[in-house]
Amino acid sequence: MSRPAVTVQPDRGEASVALHRIADNIEQVVRGQARAVRLLLCALVSGGHVLLEDVPGTGKTTLAKALARSLHADFQRIQFTPDLMPADILGTSVFNQRDQSFEFHPGPVFTDILLADEINRASPRTQAALLEAMGERQVSLDGVRRPLDELFFVIATQNPIESQGTYPLPEAQMDRFAMRLSLGYVTPEEEVEILGAQSSGHPLERIAPCVSRDVVAALRVAAEAVRLSDEMKRLIVDVVGATRGASGVRTGASPRASLALMKCGQALALLEGTDFVTPEHLAEVAVPVLAHRIVLEPEARFSGRTGVSVVREALAGRIEAHD
């Protein structure tokens, strides 16, 4: 696997500074979402994709756009609809009369940051096309494999309150997202601030890139170098394993989830400026990384149990045991 030449090789302190700079930049636009921004950056650095599950109007698109602008990265947005076809995402080959040859017109997936809005509105076939691209970081079309951009980062959104006319993502596909986040409503004070900031043009117009997109690749390398003790590996495996045997759970989190938990923990450690992973890091990312991968029995679901509660129970006792 070839890696592009890394122009910047930040040490831990610099990495943390760079990440905080991005976070501050985004927070100029997206107010009151410090936690979500933090986790979003974790996912970006860990190389995973993010599923934002929230009601409309909470700033999902703005968040994605602000991230793209801060990185000076390409940004594409696809609004998912029931009639969206795989070719609308991946691209298509068009016959060029003049050259008597097929010419590939890349789809919006060939970008750095992709916002897949309301991903559950498209048919499963289209969803699968995107999710495959996410997993493989490449697109196979007409027998030609076309690699995606190294930075390629998908922020998919999903509206949890509408269920009519939607195709819920299959459980197997949920596993492809490193994290599921929800933004939630901001406090009234922050909302007042948002109103004030919007009175003279959208603040999104005003923010400037603060790091080059190469920095992200360097951050990913730096995150992989964050140290992880055997005890922490054991903790990851214990917590993920506990979700499998928990009551009311049909399918627990997979080994891919363990991997994602580890990478996100490392990314968070990098963000915090420490060069090793602690239980705090794992506890913070465990719910966004694991909860959406857990498939509950219908009875458990109807009695109010959620993936979040399963993960919290898996953490209880285990985190304390590794003080």
Partner: peptide
């Protein structure tokens, strides 16, 4: 178990002996 003899754990025990409860699954730092 590296560092299981860390003296901070004694501080933690002293705090818990004061009846300061900890949420289940709450990390030490939090």
């Amino acid at each position: 178990v590296a560092g299981a003899d860390s003296e901070l754990l004694a501080v933690v025990a002293a705090l818990q002996a004061r009846g300061l409860a900890r949420e289940p699954g709450e990390p030490l730092g939090g």
